[in-house]
């Protein structure tokens, strides 16, 4: 099994879920297809969806909910 890392395309604050009361987009162990949303980055009061750029199984999150992230920072690790 190879691993693939989804990185952030914008700086901002990372969220696991679409809104505070909602379920997370994905959890560890979930399988995702390319193009699936795996999180949100909030910047400039707008929310930018983080999409999986490969298919695979979520092995772990590399940032915590509400962590500040930079461009190119590793967010989610997939087993592909």
């Amino acid at each position: 099994m190879a691993s693939h890392t989804i990185t952030s395309r914008t700086p901002g604050v990372f969220y696991h879920r679409p809104s505070p009361d909602a379920d997370p987009y994905v959890t560890e162990g979930a399988s995702v297809s390319e193009g699936d949303t795996v999180g949100l980055v909030e910047v400039m009061k707008t929310f930018h969806e983080v999409k999986a750029d490969a298919a695979g199984t979520v092995s772990r999150f590399l940032v915590e909910n509400e962590d500040e992230v930079t461009i190119g920072q590793d967010l989610v690790e997939l087993e592909t």
Binding site: P11, V13, V43, M44, K45, E68
Partner: peptide, 8 residues
């Protein structure tokens, strides 16, 4: 000073 996410 560090630029926060509230910067537009």
């Amino acid at each position: 000073w560090k630029v926060t996410p509230d910067a537009n």
